[in-house]
Design a binder for these strands. Structure first.
Lengths: 106, 106
DNA sequence: TCTACGTTTCCAATATTATAGAAATGTTAA
DNA sequence: TTAACATTTCTATAATATTGGAAACGTAGA
């Protein structure tokens, strides 16, 4: 079971326009991921700022990185995303099962 | 379709331990909701602080309130929660359908 | 080895957010 | 109407986050 501290950290990481944009690009890219430089170019943010935000997302457990040559490839951690969503909706709608339809993830 | 600004606002509202606790209590309470005073008592936070956080959650669209006598009853806005989750997971796992199993909401 | 390039760290200025006491507001019951 | 109670607004202080330039680091190809 997720601890509240981890959930707050993950939510805080996502609660910032630049980081949310990064994360959504990575979610859409899937396991393949996107290189840091490509992200910076797509979003038009300077290297230092990008690095800061990626570090924040990685520390929150929402993204992983791997090195390929001199590129660092980032990708979303889908299991972390699922756990966060589960934490938010845990035991929801008690006594009102009609509101509890499954939500398709994508 | 959700705008990024609304998503950031909702995530920021949830990215705070006190507010996340409030929201989860309200999610579990369902449509019935919980009075402001009861929330304050359950969580041990002073009235001014509670009011500040409830206002933040309400402004982000995550909670609704209704007045009953001299009590103000708060409840989670489940449709806002669903939209936020959909925004996060939108177009996820492109080209890797195996990771896209439906997630049950509760 | 040397050079080029992608990425990260360091740092300082600026902006935003959390907290809670005290006072104000609004509602109910007597 | 008056007194009691629930909740919100006002206000100031303290803590935390964002930004990007400059410099450092590490990898790859010549």
């Amino acid at each position: 079971m997720m601890k509240i501290g981890s959930a707050v950290e993950a939510l805080a990481a996502l609660a910032q326009e630049t980081r949310l944009s990064i994360f959504r690009l990575l979610v859409q890219a899937g396991q393949q991921g996107i290189a840091a430089g490509v992200l910076g170019e797509k979003l038009g943010i300077p290297p230092a700022t990008l690095s800061f935000h990626l570090k924040t997302l990685a520390h929150a457990g929402l993204v992983k990185s791997r090195t390929e040559g001199r590129f660092v490839i980032y990708s979303a951690d889908f299991s972390a995303m699922d756990k966060l969503i589960a934490y938010l909706t845990e035991h929801c709608c008690a006594g009102d099962a009609s509101r509890c339809a499954p939500v398709k993830k994508c």
